[in-house]
């Protein structure tokens, strides 16, 4: 998330893991946490580290929702599409968000500030509709609240803790 921070070299990130396939997903998670996404170079490095064909890693990386193969925005908005949120109008919320950000789900805005995605369920159904932004939860949203939040973030360029 913190793009200003110095990132560690990938070999340093993965070195602590034993060289076994069972650690693949953990490695991918940590590499993504470090760089924000999984680059081709990262995957190739992991491939030779684990002695696992890159086709297998690419298959895993494209299977799970969590993994990104392109650099995401600095502010990652994830709208919850769980049942409770759906019943409370999260589809409209998503529509508003697409309009406000001017991007579709899975895209990153041109300035690299925002990226938009949906998540299956954040598990905070009682405060539906909800979204997660850079790891923080926001609940009981409506169009107005969303507008306010996004404008604030756009102005400051970051999400306050």
């Amino acid at each position: 998330m913190e793009t200003t921070q110095q990132t560690r070299p990938i070999d340093e990130v993965i070195a602590k893991y034993p060289k076994a396939r069972e650690h693949l997903i953990s490695i991918l998670q940590e590499v993504q946490a470090e760089y924000g996404f999984l680059s081709t170079e990262s995957i190739n490095r992991i491939s030779s580290y684990l002695n696992l064909p890159s086709s297998k890693i690419f298959g895993v990386a494209t299977f799970y929702n969590q993994f990104k193969l392109n650099a995401p925005g600095r502010i990652q908005v994830a709208i919850c599409r769980g049942t409770a949120c759906h019943v409370k109008g999260s589809l409209n919320l998503l529509d508003s968000c697409r309009q406000l950000l001017g991007i579709e789900v899975g895209q990153t805005s041109k300035d690299g500030l925002f990226s938009l995605e949906t998540v299956a369920c954040l598990g905070c159904c009682s405060i539906a509709p909800a979204m997660m932004v850079n790891g923080q939860f926001f609940g009981r949203l409506d169009k107005k609240k969303l507008e306010y939040l996004i404008e604030t973030w756009r102005a400051s360029g970051r999400v306050e803790e």
């Binding site: 064909p53 086709s55 297998k56 690419f58 494209t62």
Partner: peptide
């Protein structure tokens, strides 16, 4: 292992890496 399943659900495809 030149090819594998990629993506999932209806969008699944058997493709080479990347």
């Amino acid at each position: 292992a030149a090819i594998d399943f990629t993506r999932r659900g209806f969008d699944t495809m058997v493709l080479p890496p990347f």
